[in-house]
């Protein structure tokens, strides 16, 4: 009853909290050409755990912004304009805080839950694993 597979179908969160599940979902997204959404989701989690006093943290915030938010990437297209503006302002003013990507992460997560996650559960990658 508590097999990994049972957990994966419970929620996107349980899938991503499992090593095999996250790996398999990543494989699926690579095939669908939208693996950036998952990398962004993990980057937001990683960023939240960083030490704000560490100079590295500002560089990571900038890197996340440049790679996923400021361009026309798949992540950027799924974010609300206000969310992008909020992040851009924080980066510009070098005012970073641990939760600055939280809203963006939530938006991306909702899209994944309603779309990629559902598709994954009926995908070849998943069924082959079963």
């Amino acid at each position: 009853p508590d097999s990994p597979l049972a957990r994966w179908t419970k929620s996107l969160h349980s899938l991503l909290g499992d090593q095999d599940g996250a790996y398999l979902f990543r494989t699926f997204l690579e095939r669908e050409k939208c693996v950036d959404t998952l990398d962004f989701w993990f980057a937001c989690n990683g960023f939240r755990q960083m030490d704000l006093k560490d100079t590295k943290t500002l560089r990571v915030a900038k890197a996340i912004y440049k790679r996923y938010v400021e361009n026309h990437s798949i992540v950027s297209k799924q974010l609300k304009p206000a969310t992008k503006t909020y992040i851009r302002d924080g980066i510009k003013k070098q005012q970073i805080d641990s939760v600055m990507f939280d809203q963006a992460q939530t938006e991306i997560q909702r899209v994944m839950e309603g779309n990629a996650y559902q598709m994954f559960l009926t995908s070849e990658v998943y069924l082959e694993y079963l």
């Binding site: 990994p4 991503l16 909290g17 499992d18 090593q19 095999d20 599940g21 996250a22 990398d39 993990f42 980057a43 937001c44 989690n45 990683g46 960023f47 755990q49 960083m50 590295k56 560089r59 990571v60 900038k62 890197a63 996340i64 440049k66 790679r67």
Partner: peptide
């Protein structure tokens, strides 16, 4: 000094699940 890509990769990896 690490490149931006390395820092980003490190950040992503740090958040990936390590155990089942």
């Amino acid at each position: 000094i690490d490149s931006e890509d390395d820092l980003l990769q490190e950040c992503i990896s740090s958040a990936m699940p390590k155990t089942k």
